[in-house]
Design a protein around this nucleic acid. Sequence first.
DNA 1: TAGATTGTTAATCGATTAACAATC
DNA 2: TAGATTGTTAATCGATTAACAATC
Lengths: 209, 209
Amino acid sequence: MTEIKEKISSCIMERLERYYLYIQRLSEQGQVWISSQELAEGLNLTSSTVRQDISHLNFSGISKRGYELVKLRQTLRSVLGLDTRYATVIVGAGNFGRALLLHDDFREKGFDIKAIFDNNPKLIGKRIESYYIQSIDKLTAVVKKNNVRIGVIAVPAKAAQEVADKLTAAGVNGILNLSTANVQIPQGKVIVNSHIILDFIQLAFYLNE
Amino acid sequence: MTEIKEKISSCIMERLERYYLYIQRLSEQGQVWISSQELAEGLNLTSSTVRQDISHLNFSGISKRGYELVKLRQTLRSVLGLDTRYATVIVGAGNFGRALLLHDDFREKGFDIKAIFDNNPKLIGKRIESYYIQSIDKLTAVVKKNNVRIGVIAVPAKAAQEVADKLTAAGVNGILNLSTANVQIPQGKVIVNSHIILDFIQLAFYLNE
DNA sequence: TAGATTGTTAATCGATTAACAATC
DNA sequence: TAGATTGTTAATCGATTAACAATC
């Protein structure tokens, strides 16, 4: 598995994710086989790229038929690391934090949200469906108890670094940073930045072309 | 300007956005000059890449000092298309739609949210701060009246294509798709996909390396 | 068998980096 | 002037595409 991962650049990985979501949907609809051509058309790629990507996975298709959806999906799940579950916490109980908390898609894909934290005394103790907003002081205890691996930063940019420090100190290995801050983390930890404003700006750019 | 844009691949553009946000923050803190080296360190790039990127902008630095922050920021704003405002609507008044609606950052960057729509009769007419959730039937009228250029799809995947069709038919030019659906749009229109689940999956991948 | 589609090699294309002369 | 940093050219590196033999 490690050898497979080494061949996968971040560029290929991003496509693998899209294959996974696309295939998932087709297989729910009952489709059984898919050709590199069809996958390429669905995702705006060339069939050559698709075949190259899949060749990195130790997975084989069959001439004249293509790839077996269910098996390809399982291979992708395993390569992407989606056959384990990830205990997750959210820091920041603002609108985005709450929206994430209530979004079923994450649980379904393997991300179990264990708790949500805030440092605003007015919010602490408030209930959001089955969750109670907890004081950030409880973070370390919750992380340890639940073996939390992922922490989501859903606080304003200026508080982001502090939250990241608390999360990594508590033992979280991966951070999803929703703030626009440029957060620094210790070696060996992983951070993925997700700034929706960047997507708006991208749209602005293309609208002026 | 068009000639500048032609030189900018999507790859460079994504970095330009990050320069913009980073520089914005530094200039708020009162910094006046920045070197390619400093910018590179802040964003995990090489100074060579930074200089190459900036050289595409018809913008010059000064030897021994670097780039003047305020001017570079203005250039980036203009190249990225951020010196106009974008009337925007949100379709889908679920948790994400609401979170976006209430997020100040967008207005500040030039995206004016004019209205939020839903097709759920229980939600229509409900108030969210200064907005009232409107029936999707009102979409076309609102788009025309406000010269709306951007539509955000914040509905479940299975309704996404239908919403996209309505948005483009109403005259919107750009779509930000938050659902995981693979939405097709007419030639000449622009779509940017933003699927937060992909960022979670990315994290899962890197956590297993 | 004939035709279609994979898997893989080699060619092309583009992005990143290195290096250094020009400049402040 | 000496040293630092830009701007730019050329080299390297990696990703995408084309092409086609192997296979079903």
